[in-house]
Structure formats: C-alpha cells, structure tokens
Design a protein around this nucleic acid. Structure first.
Lengths: 204, 204
DNA sequence: CCGTCGATGTATCGTCCCGATACATCGGAG
DNA sequence: CTCCGATGTATCGGGACGATACATCGACGG
C-alpha cells in the first residue's frame, strides 16, 4: 500500500522523505498519517527493487583529507522514480481485482490516484468496492438483528454507529459511480477520448 | 488493546481461544476482526504476565506407556482470568486519560466494556474522545479549505467523505454524552447508587 | 554576536498485528 | 464408513507503528 502511494507521489516529482510524508498525509485524507518507521523501510525496499534512485553520492570516496567535524555526515536524500518504477506504478494502477478494493486503506490510495487510472478501471474498482462494503453491511445487519437482545446499550450504540457509517459509505460510492457513468455518457456525446480522467471542474 | 479486550471477555467467563475470537469480533463491531496471529501471542503474553491461567496439564508427565497415535497431542485449552488479571482489568477500565480515547480502536473497546466502568470515568472518556475527534475535524477542515483548489475531484471527494464521517462521530459522541448526563440526573433524582451502569432498556 | 527554538530531515529499535498456513479433532450428512 | 465443515491450537514472515536519537538551518530576540 505504501509502495503504491510513494510511487504515485514520486511519479509527479522527486522528493525528500520528509516532504513525502507530508504529501502522503494530505493525500490519505488528513487523518491517516504515515510514520517514518514505515516510510524509510519502504523507501529502502523500493530502492532495492530498483523502482527509485537516490542522489546520495555514496559516503565512501571523494574526501580523503576532509574531516572538520566528520560526525554523522547525515545528508539529505532526494528520491526519484525510475522507468521501472513508473512501469510498476502503471501496472498497479491498472489492477481492478479484489486486491484493489478489499482493503479500505488501499482503496483510499487508489482513489487518491484515480486521475492516473483509465475510466473503465475506475468504474470496476468503484463497483468492486461498493460490493465489498455492501457485503460488510449485510453481515453487520444480520449480526445486529441476531444479537440485539443480548447486547448492552453501549455495544449496541457502537454497532449502530458502525452500521450507519458503512451505509453512508455505500451511498457515497453509489454517487461516485453515478458520476462516472454520467461523465462517460457525456464524453461519448462529446466525442472525446474515452478514458480521459475528468478534471476537478469538468465544464467551467 | 487486545489485552484489554481479552481480559474483559474472560472477566465474564473462561473461554477457548476460538470462542474468544468469535466474541471479540462481535464486541468489536462486526467489521474489525482479530486474527489468530494476534490472539495466541497475546494470550501467551497474558499467561506469562500471570493475568490468565490455562487448564493445560502440561504435556510431559502422566502417560508412560500410552502411545496409540501420540502425534501432535494438540489439546483444547481453556483460559481463565486470575485475581491479578481482574485487578489489571479494573486498573485499565479506570483510566480516563488520553491513552483511553486517543486511539479510535482502543476507544471502541473501552465503549464495549463500558458497563464495567464507573459513571464519572465514562463521562470523562466520552468527553476526551469528543475533544480528540473535534481536533481532528478542525485540522481536516483547515487542510481542506487550504488545498481545495489544488486537489482533483477524487481526492476532494475522499476528504469530504472523511470530514463528514468525523463530523458524524462528533455528533454521535455528543448524543452519548447527553444521555450520560440525563441518566446521571435521573439517578440523582431517584436516589440510586451513583456509578450504576444504565441497563439496555433503563425504562421499559 | 550568540543562543536557542522550531521546522526540516534521516534513520533505527522493539513491539504489535495481520494474512497465510499447517495440523488436529469431532459430529453429522450422505 | 467416509468425507466435510465447524471447532480448535499454533507458527512464520513481513509490514506498520510509536518512540527515540541525531543532525542541519533559518529566524528571533538578548
């Protein structure tokens, strides 16, 4: 999941780890933040896999007689996506199976990078997510009506609130899907390229 | 977090790990489930800490000449809470500081065992949680109005939906707090014990 | 001119949790 | 009688987290 998000951000421009974290927090919805304990190991993995490069000139050669403080020598590192990294990102962005929407966190990241996603894939991902959440809702409803009598008021409130949240998510997804379909028809009528990501204000 | 939930459940009656998992899923709101990869290590920790005992008679003594299959010898294990465990649970249940509500997951568990919690602690935890979520909401609002122009429609939708969810949670918490206050006044008027957990249907 | 304070920045450690997987037992349906 | 699904215990590798340490730099006031 981090892999996806990092590649997506680096796809737009090279960045420091620090900046990456800030942008990530923004894109992820503001509440979900990413810790350095996840970020740096993830960058290390991506680097090992050849998906990103660093400008670190490796700290071992060009200063034989230069040792003022010489402590730490911690330098800033700019991460840049490679051609393989871009390929990997587009491979991930093209996936529309359960791995794209079963996990809510990953789905959020997918949504944040939907502008890089083809229209048909967008639609499949949204509908898959809706199906997943609908199943959750049904399970929740069943469980709630089964155990309504045996639960105390607090547990009951917790479940009720959870169910309403899931219900709201389903309706939200339905709205997004509707909009996708409308835009798709609109594009067909306009004769525009199919798969064009709709802009923030499609018709200003 | 698991520690709390497990002790809370075992507080009611001894159980197998398997049953524990099912009850846990129920109490946690139906969506959040707990995997065995978390549960058994957690039980091991609780056992090592002396908070639970098992009926496992230890597999090393009483069958010298008994070896029909002798494979595995995997037996069922019933976990029972100890006096120290109950003490630990009440210690945890009495906490009303940030550790009780800063994390949403832990707060959910707290709520699920609110019937074991004193009325004043309940109120402090609910108000603390509301404050936390309110701060989240303000941060989200600020971030959203700051970046509204630069975000594409999908990221915008994501943030909007997130903000509405947080907003709904604040209102939900306010309702719960109101109810606590009402019940508290009611109890005072009735002359009942302060701290009585309100039942599921306080006035049938 | 200096100190220190907050933002920027890199990095690791221990711990927790998860999904996948393996294995074992048992009651009932076919 | 046999197979199947529910019950049941357990581990493994890996990912993510919070806490923490350390380093650099600009700005601000004393």
């Amino acid at each position: 999941m981090l892999e996806f998000a990092i590649l997506g951000l680096l796809h737009q421009s090279p960045m420091h780890g620090y900046e990456l974290r800030k942008q990530l927090a923004q894109v992820l919805g503001g509440l979900r933040s990413i810790s350095y304990g996840s970020l740096y190991p993830a960058l290390k993995r991506l680097h090992a896999a050849g998906y990103v490069t660093t400008d670190e000139p490796d700290p071992r050669a060009p200063l034989p007689a230069d040792a003022p403080p010489l402590t730490g020598r911690r330098g800033k590192v700019v991460y840049t996506i490679t051609a393989e990294g871009k390929e990997r990102f587009h491979e991930l962005v093209g996936q529309s199976g359960p791995e794209a929407y079963d996990d809510g966190g990953l789905f959020g990241v997918r949504l944040a990078f939907f502008r890089h996603t083809a229209a048909d894939v967008r639609l499949r991902v949204l509908e898959g997510r809706r199906r997943t959440v609908e199943l959750q809702r049904e399970g929740l409803r069943a469980s709630l009506s089964r155990t309504r009598e045996r639960l105390d008021r607090y547990t009951l409130e917790l479940q009720r609130h959870g169910l309403e949240s899931v219900d709201r998510e389903v309706r939200w997804l339905a709205e997004l899907i509707d909009r996708e379909l409308t835009d798709s028809h609109q594009r067909r009528a306009d004769g525009a390229e199919p798969g064009d990501p709709p802009e923030t204000s499609p018709r200003p």
